[in-house]
Simulated assay, not measured.
Amino acid sequence: MSISNQASTSGGQTVVITGTNLGGATAVHFGSNLATITANTATSVTPTTPSGSGVAQVTVTTPGGTSNPLNFYYVGAPFKAALSATSGPLAGGNVVTITGTGLSTATAVHFGANTATPTVVSDSAITVAVPAGAAVGSVGVSVTTAGGTNNGFTYTYVDVPTVTAFAPTSGPASGGTAVTITGTSLSSTESVTFGGRSAPFVVINDTTIAAVAPPTADGAGGPADITVTNAAGSATAATPFQYLSSPGI
C-alpha cells in the first residue's frame, strides 16, 4: 500500500492511497482521526485528510480487516523571515531569495496575481525568478508549500527612471551645489552620482529629486554625468553638470 505522504496540518486535502483488496473500504484513519472517503476502488481509496500534526499512521479498514500502517507527515504552514530584495523591474526576471522555515516543500511563490516556481535550496531558503508585473506598484508575496500558504511580504515593481532636466547646470568643483533633478519614476531612487561620485539626495516626489553635488575627485573643474539609479536600472542626463574651477592669480 502507498500514499502521497505530506499535507497541511489543517487537513482538508485530498490524498490517494493505492494497494490491493481495498474495495468496500469502510474507514481510513490518520492516527486516531477518521478521514472522509470520497472515492474507492479495489486498488485505491481517496480520503480527505483530517487535521493533525507530526507523524500519523494511516490505515484502511475493509470488510476483510485493517491494512498495515503507513507513515503520513503533517507539514505546518511556512514561516517567511526575509525577502532579499523588496523591489525590482516591472519586466521581472531578477532572482530573489526567501528565507524562513518550512520551505522545503515550496511549490509556488505568488507575486500578486502572478506565480513563479521556486528552487528549493534548503528548508530555510528558496530562490525564485520574479515574474513580470502587471503594473508599477506594490504587490503581496506569498509562498505555497505542502503545509499551506503564508503571506506577509510586499514587493514593489518599479520602472526604469528617466532624467529630463536639472538645475542649476553648474557649480564649484568643491561641491555643495543644491541641484534639482526632474524626470520620471524617481520615487524609488536608490542612488544619485555626479561623474561616478555618490551624491546625497532627497526624493521630493516621483518626478523630482533634490541632490547635492559632491566635490570632484581631484578638485578640478570639468563635466560630470548625473546618473540616477533604482532597482529597475539607471538613467543619465543628456548633458553633463559642469564643475567650475576655482580662480587663481
Results as ranks from 00 to 15, higher is better:
113 A>Q: 05
113 A>D: 12
113 A>W: 05
113 A>Y: 03
113 A>R: 07
114 N>G: 10
114 N>R: 10
114 N>L: 11
114 N>C: 06
114 N>F: 08
115 T>F: 10
115 T>Q: 11
115 T>W: 03
115 T>M: 15
115 T>K: 06
116 A>N: 03
116 A>F: 07
116 A>G: 03
116 A>M: 06
116 A>C: 09
117 T>D: 08
117 T>M: 03
117 T>K: 09
117 T>V: 09
118 P>R: 03
118 P>S: 05
118 P>D: 06
119 T>C: 12
119 T>R: 10
119 T>H: 14
120 V>D: 05
120 V>S: 07
120 V>I: 14
122 S>H: 10
122 S>C: 09
122 S>K: 09
123 D>E: 14
123 D>Y: 02
123 D>N: 14
123 D>C: 12
123 D>G: 15
123 D>Q: 12
124 S>M: 06
124 S>C: 11
124 S>W: 08
124 S>P: 12
124 S>N: 15
124 S>A: 12
125 A>W: 02
125 A>L: 01
125 A>H: 02
125 A>R: 05
125 A>K: 10
125 A>E: 10
125 A>Y: 00
126 I>M: 00
126 I>Q: 00
126 I>R: 00
127 T>A: 06
127 T>Q: 04
127 T>Y: 07
128 V>R: 03
128 V>C: 05
128 V>T: 03
128 V>M: 01
129 A>T: 15
129 A>M: 09
129 A>Y: 11
130 V>P: 01
130 V>Q: 01
131 P>W: 01
131 P>M: 05
131 P>Q: 01
131 P>E: 05
132 A>F: 12
132 A>D: 13
132 A>Q: 15
133 G>L: 06
133 G>V: 08
134 A>M: 08
134 A>C: 07
134 A>T: 12
134 A>G: 14
135 A>S: 14
135 A>P: 12
136 V>Y: 05
136 V>C: 04
136 V>M: 11
137 G>V: 08
137 G>F: 13
137 G>L: 11
137 G>A: 13
137 G>M: 09
137 G>T: 14
138 S>D: 14
138 S>M: 13
138 S>A: 13
138 S>N: 09
138 S>Y: 11
138 S>I: 05
138 S>V: 14
138 S>T: 15
138 S>L: 14
139 V>G: 01
139 V>F: 13
139 V>N: 00
139 V>P: 00
140 G>Q: 11
140 G>C: 09
140 G>H: 10
140 G>R: 07
140 G>W: 07
140 G>T: 06
141 V>F: 09
141 V>L: 04
141 V>C: 05
141 V>E: 00
141 V>A: 01
141 V>Q: 01
142 S>I: 08
142 S>N: 11
142 S>D: 08
142 S>V: 11
142 S>C: 12
143 V>F: 07
143 V>R: 01
143 V>P: 03
143 V>T: 01
143 V>L: 10
143 V>C: 10
143 V>D: 00
144 T>C: 14
144 T>H: 04
144 T>W: 06
145 T>G: 01
145 T>H: 09
146 A>D: 14
146 A>Y: 04
146 A>M: 11
146 A>T: 06
